[in-house]
């Protein structure tokens, strides 16, 4: 495999993980615009554990993902009292605050950044992304996934049918934070260097774009969205300086024509009955 191709596939893997971190709360009707903050928690915690405590990478990554999830739960419970645009603003601010905390935390390098000694090779990153996709596919076959859609579709009725709307939303938010932390922890060990400035607004916003483009109705939407957003700019490289303008124009036209995203349930029906079991 060429270095270029490997590089693109590694980026793709991180983008897929980020997309699913955002997809989980979106599936329950909540927009988390602070996903970069949870990636930062995973990245810094895992780097600290391997650098300073000499933990093996796998243990550091898993514990850091759990830590990001715990922070997600603690912050999620009060933050999820807000809805719609207010929730988006609260999570947006949260992502900024977390990033600012690491910028000022001298024990992990502060503004100078934090080198990471232990290295996770590309194959580990590919396996991790495949693991996240597999986990999400499995999750999509459960009642939990069904309730995510139910809670998003009609919270009043879900509540009257006995479903804990707050519980499902908090669980989705927490799981999303955990997946983000997992991705961040691997990122730190693949690129061997992290700095607070990397976990910025764009890192929070792009995964949302992948998910909305791919479509939120099915579990495959985020995967398709991440694939498209990672690979399309590469293919457009030929047209050099105009590629971002062309790409942006295409996105605007596409979202105007198909606001529900690329992959929808009716699309599955259109292409036969092979895969109804993976729709959520």
């Amino acid at each position: 495999m060429s270095g270029y191709l490997t590089g693109v596939l590694v980026t793709l893997s991180f983008n897929i993980i980020a997309a699913y971190a955002v997809y989980l709360p979106i599936a329950a009707g909540q927009l988390n615009l602070g996903i970069a903050g949870f990636m930062a928690i995973g990245a810094y915690a895992a780097a600290f554990l391997t650098n300073e405590m000499s933990w093996p990478i796998w243990a550091a990554v898993l514990v850091s993902a759990g830590l990001a999830g715990s922070v997600g739960l603690m912050i999620g419970l009060p933050v999820l009292r807000t809805h719609g645009i207010y929730l988006a603003m609260a999570t947006f601010a949260l992502g900024q605050v977390i990033s600012a905390v690491f910028l000022n935390l001298e024990v992990v390098g502060g503004a100078a950044g934090y080198p990471v000694a232990a290295y996770a090779p590309p194959n580990i990153v590919f396996a991790a992304a495949a693991g996240v996709v597999g986990f999400m596919l499995l999750l999509s076959t459960t009642r939990f996934a069904l309730y995510l859609t139910a809670v998003k579709s009609d919270p009043t009725v879900a509540d009257l049918l006995g479903v804990s709307v707050r519980g499902i939303q908090a669980a989705a938010f927490t799981l999303g934070a955990m997946v983000a932390g997992f991705g961040g922890a691997l990122y730190a060990h693949h690129y061997s260097f992290i700095e607070a400035q990397h976990f910025n607004v764009m890192l929070s916003v792009f995964p949302v774009l992948y998910v909305l483009f791919g479509g939120t109705q099915t579990v495959l939407g985020p995967l398709v969205g991440a694939l498209f957003f990672t690979l399309a700019p590469e293919w457009l490289r030929a047209s050099a300086e105009w590629r971002y303008a062309l790409f942006a124009l295409f996105i605007i036209l596409f979202m105007a024509a198909r606001p529900q995203g690329l992959v929808t349930m009716s699309l599955f029906r259109l292409f036969g009955r092979r895969k109804p079991q993976v729709t959520t």
């Binding site: 009642r143 069904l146 859609t149 579709s153």
Partner: peptide
């Protein structure tokens, strides 16, 4: 729930 199939709506109904 408009985004769910008939069967899925009934499955949510079984939650209790």
């Amino acid at each position: 729930m408009a985004h769910l199939s008939v069967l899925d709506n009934l499955l949510v109904g079984q939650h209790r």
